[in-house]
Design a protein around this nucleic acid. Structure first.
Length: 514
RNA sequence: GCGGGAGUAGCUCAGCUGGUAGAGCGACAGCCUUCCAAGCUGUAGGUCGCGAGUUCGAACCUCGUCUCCCGCUCCA
């Protein structure tokens, strides 16, 4: 299998467009940066991936239910979640090193240096005074230390003012006044400070000025958290239980690239699992294992996955890991499993003034549950399936074929029915079969061109089975079924086609492997 | 956002020192053949990414702009 091939991604992009999987969005207007549309085959594959996930999460677990929350949410949601602050980073570039920094981090680092100087003074004094040393007194009276402290206070005040009033010109001036230089280039040649808000905002209410700013959700998780009590009460759920959701999320990424890997509009499949505090790390391990199993059941290659444990944890987490997949660009995050503690629910309690607690009848007390989250990028999963499936094969006779070895349960079209010729009543016979199959299987009819060419066309979109109607069919009602991967054909009675398809494209079998 | 590269038919690409666009594959219709991209005939499809400028004349030169790719950067 071709891996880490620079051209592989390009080939997948071309193939996706040529065969109706993914088109650049608004292409007739030159497209829109990093925005893509799913075509006729892409939407089928995507829906099948969703279905596999949804069934594995919701249908197969009696304590997990699904919801579908709105993309618009009350603005306070994002204050509570921390997105308003954390997604609002003032950034600055050094023109010489081309390195980008968070402007506030540069200033914080500078402050840390001054604090280092204070610590040095304290250490020196401690040595001098010995046991009689009173640190508090020293710090509040020593002229040099007091000077440093005032300096820090002034810097912090000025930075805070710059952030609060969005005065980025002064932010830059502050960095220049402090003689902060780039640790890489050593130069003080800075660009202006710019604000990058990773949330898209829009106006709610049609009267300008009268409207309030609302955001497109940057993650689907919060829709689950704000509904946690609704679901718990109305579904009579008991801990531990989970809520699953599939939906679009939006992030105004500074750089969105690598095809559908990082888009500004993307789709997430998230499940928030609510557990008793203290149990969260056990569940975290369980979900890591369960999710990995879900991936490996697809058979894209066990070596294509790995865990990446986070060392630097986000503010809400006490454990976090990614499942990384070996994309054409290398190992990259596909799914995140996070132990989010009670951060979100507690934050929503504080901001809303509503209790979001669970009454534990065994312990006879109320508490805010802890949360273990699994969050997978649907578009990334799509790309993983597509890049694993894409194969260029050289056949025994030296000819080449491009085949998508998509797991049959996920394949956009399950079966193509092909009359060997378009005469002698074969097309009618083929239509007859397809009309029976189409209730349960996505099926295609094709009579154009030589049979070999039609097989290749189906290979290119990953159709696992081709049923061919030939002259013998008219005599004994048997057909041949051609397998996409082995290219082998077997002749079976027409009635057995359904059984073969059911077996060969079974989502149930996939779920059993979970 | 910075640096580098690139945009010509559905796809892959030609197109010389400027003279109003081609191939292969693919698509469509028909004939012939009939089990792994055979053959023949015909048809459709391009504001040369977009906009200005230079020129008698621009796919080609200049500037701007958009999009894509690679690297940096960022990534809940």
């Amino acid at each position: 299998m071709a891996k880490n091939d620079d051209n592989l991604l390009k080939k997948i992009v071309s193939h996706s467009k040529e065969y109706g999987f993914i088109f650049p969005s608004s292409e007739i207007y030159d497209g829109l940066a990093a925005t893509y549309d799913y075509g006729q085959n892409g939407v089928e594959l995507k829906n099948n991936i969703k279905q596999y996930w949804w069934k594995a999460m919701v249908q197969m677990n009696e304590n997990i239910v699904g919801i579908d929350s709105a993309i618009f949410m009350h603005p306070t949601t994002w204050k509570a979640s921390g997105h308003v602050d954390a997604f609002n980073d003032p950034l600055i570039d050094n023109k010489d090193s081309k390195k980008r920094y968070r402007a506030d981090v540069l200033v914080e680092d500078h402050i840390a240096k001054i604090e280092g100087k204070i610590a040095k003074e304290v250490a020196k004094a401690a040595k001098r005074f010995g046991d009689a040393f009173n640190e508090d007194e020293f710090v509040s009276t020593n002229g040099r230390v007091v000077g440093y402290k005032e300096k820090i206070a002034a810097i912090e005040k000025r930075m805070q003012a710059a952030i609060d009033t969005q005065n980025y010109a002064d932010f830059k001036a502050l960095i220049e006044d402090l003689d902060i230089f780039c640790p890489v280039s050593g130069s003080k040649n800075w660009t202006d400070v710019r604000q990058f808000n990773l949330m898209f905002s829009t106006e709610l209410g049609s009267v300008a000025g009268d409207a309030s700013t609302i955001y497109l959700r940057p993650e689907t998780a919060q829709g689950i958290f704000v509904n946690y009590l609704n679901v718990q009460k109305s579904g009579r759920m008991k801990l531990p239980f989970g809520i699953a959701q599939i939906g679009k999320a939006f992030r105004n990424e500074i750089i969105a690239r690598q095809f559908i890997f990082r888009m500004r509009e993307f789709e997430q499949m998230e499940m928030q699992f609510f557990v008793k505090p203290g149990d969260e790390l056990d569940w975290y391990e369980k979900w890591k294992e369960k999710r990995m199993k879900w991936h490996k059941a697809l058979g894209l290659g066990d070596n294509s996955y790995r865990f990446h444990d986070h060392l630097n944890l986000a503010h809400y987490a006490n454990a976090a890991a990614d499942i990384e997949y070996d994309f054409p660009m290398g190992f990259k995050e596909l799914e995140g499993i996070h132990s989010r503690t009670d951060f979100d629910l507690t934050a929503h309690e504080n901001h809303s003034g509503k209790k979001l607690q669970f009454f534990d009848p065994q312990e006879n007390k109320n508490y805010v549950p802890y949360v273990v989250e699994t969050s997978i990028g649907l578009d990334r999963m799509f790309l993983a399936v597509l890049s694993a499936a894409y194969n260029e094969e050289t056949l025994e006779d030296g000819s080449e074929r491009v085949v998508l070895n998509i797991p049959p349960a996920l394949a956009p079209t399950k079966v193509a029915v092909l009359p060997l010729t378009k005469k002698d009543g074969l097309p009618e016979k083929a239509r007859e079969l397809i009309n029976k199959l189409k209730f349960d299987f996505t099926a295609q009819y094709d009579e154009k061109d030589a049979i070999g060419k039609r097989y290749r066309r189906q290979d290119a979109i990953g159709t696992p089975f081709c049923v061919t109607i030939d002259h013998q069919t008219l005599e004994d009602n048997t057909v041949t079924i051609r397998n996409r991967d082995s290219m082998e054909q077997v002749r079976v009675p027409m009635e057995e086609v359904r059984t073969t398809l059911e077996k060969g494209t079974s989502l149930t079998d996939l779920l059993r492997k979970n």
